[in-house]
């Protein structure tokens, strides 16, 4: 397995606000993501998942350690690390098509080629017919599909997703998981996906990394050997249920710890 992304000894301590104690959000963490891996980071809320992902994205600086992508150290945000946020971050003043083309314009891709790429992703995300809509006119699930398309249009080396379906209702969320998985099954784009939902973590991943309660660190690594293509029926298979039972145990201990702290 070639290392696409290497997280070496990365930790993050936030300085205390107004003379308060500094907050350790992330303990020194090591993480290797191979080419074409689909990794899910699973942990209770507040354990530092977003912090870790933001450091990989270059939106935050680690207190110690470093992040390497294809052997190069990450120094700031860049289009080779596409990011999808939990909050809806489409640019409200751009249409769906213009949102998807945002990064292409930044790179100076010619208009004709831009249009082609946009049409391609509109189609794959099931958004044909919505090209000229404003983000406001779309449902949450659709907005996140556009956000994924917008990140993929840049053809990033790795796709980072921070609980992208966290705000969606269960049915929409399940459909979105299948859509994302079908895209991965075709392109095998390297993915790092953050979630606190056990089922989601298993269903999508080739490997699930379980994090401890705050201050977070990776405490277990669970390979998911379920075959592809995966469908929603798989969620009731014995293998899936066994994995779910195991991860529930792992997470429960942490959730109890996290709850005790508050």
């Amino acid at each position: 397995m070639s290392a696409k992304l290497l997280v070496e000894n990365v930790s993050r301590v936030f300085p205390g606000v107004r003379g308060g104690e500094p907050v350790t959000a992330l303990q020194p963490t090591h993480l290797t993501v191979g080419e074409n891996d689909f990794i899910t980071l699973l942990g209770p809320s507040g354990c530092g998942k977003s912090t870790l992902l933001r450091i990989v994205a270059g939106l935050d600086r680690p207190t110690t350690g470093r992040v390497l992508l294809d052997g190069r150290e990450v120094a700031g945000p860049g289009p080779e690390r596409g990011m999808v946020f939990q909050s809806y971050t489409l640019f409200p003043w751009l249409t769906v098509a213009q949102n998807i083309a945002y990064g292409l314009v930044e790179r100076g891709v010619p208009e004709a080629q831009r249009r082609e790429t946009v049409a391609h992703y509109l189609d794959r995300m099931g958004l044909s017919g919505f090209a000229e809509h404003w983000p406001k006119q779309l449902s949450g699930g659709m907005q996140q599909r556009v956000a994924i398309a917008r990140a993929l249009a840049n053809d990033p080396a790795i796709l980072l997703l921070d609980e992208p379906f966290g705000a969606l209702d269960n049915q929409t969320r399940a459909l979105m998981q299948e859509l994302l998985l079908s895209i991965w099954e075709r392109d095998r784009k390297t993915v790092l996906f953050v979630t606190h939902d056990i089922e989601e973590a298993i269903f999508l991943a080739s490997r699930v990394l379980v994090m401890t309660a705050r201050p977070g660190r990776i405490k277990a690594e669970v390979p998911v050997d379920l075959p592809h293509p995966r469908g929603y029926r798989m969620k009731t298979s014995p293998e899936f249920t066994a994995l779910k039972a195991r991860l529930t145990e792992e997470i429960r201990a942490e959730a109890v710890l996290a709850a005790a702290e508050h």
């Binding site: 945000p77 860049g78 971050t89 640019f91 945002y102 990064g103 930044e106």
Partner: peptide
């Protein structure tokens, strides 16, 4: 300006100048 929009722009390849022109201004 919404911080997450600015951050999204950076992860899409914008630099500081283009964040001003393509995000802060239209937003």
């Amino acid at each position: 300006t919404r911080r997450d929009l600015v951050e999204a722009a950076y992860t899409l390849g914008s630099n500081e100048r283009s964040v001003v022109r393509r995000v802060l201004l239209p937003a």
